[in-house]
């Protein structure tokens, strides 16, 4: 059985764009599930709060950005480290038409939850083919 990888992964090429700030970028682990009316996305982003996460939907590409300020204790020395802090970035192409006005996002305990309501199904159209 494959050992589950429990640590966060560094982004190999975050959104194919260079960033102005020289900071590590991580790919948040996500769960995405579909209900009848919506698509729900859950992302593990420890260190972000509601003010430091940005969600963008352009056409059908959903981009999540989270900024994390490094924590430090000025009177203490970091003597042992297993994880590093950095920003989060990940983008998804959404499968169905999403109602852009009905996107709800919440952050609780470092987990981002985005609920994307599906748009009313556009009516099926029959396309008449004309003889040339």
């Amino acid at each position: 059985m494959k050992e589950p990888n429990l640590q966060k992964q560094t982004a190999s090429n975050p959104a194919e764009m260079e960033r102005t700030r020289n900071r590590k970028v991580y790919v948040p682990r996500v769960d995405i599930y579909e209900t009848k009316e919506s698509i729900v996305l859950l992302a593990d982003m420890p260190g972000v709060d509601e003010g430091s996460v940005d969600i963008m939907l352009e056409k059908n590409v959903l981009t999540i950005n989270g900024t994390v300020e490094p924590v430090g204790f000025p009177e203490h020395n970091l003597v042992y480290a297993e994880y590093d802090t950095g920003d989060y970035q990940r983008a998804f192409t959404l499968p169905e038409e999403i109602d852009q006005n009905k996107i709800e996002a919440t952050v609780k305990n470092g987990v981002l939850r985005v609920v994307l309501q599906k748009a009313e199904k556009s009516k099926a159209r029959k396309i008449a083919i004309k003889a040339a």
């Binding site: 429990l6 640590q7 204790f73 009177e75 203490h76």
Partner: peptide, 12 residues
């Protein structure tokens, strides 16, 4: 390491 959770330790 694969120990969960990953920890950082600061010493004062």
């Amino acid at each position: 390491s694969q120990d969960f959770p990953a920890i950082n330790v600061w010493s004062g």
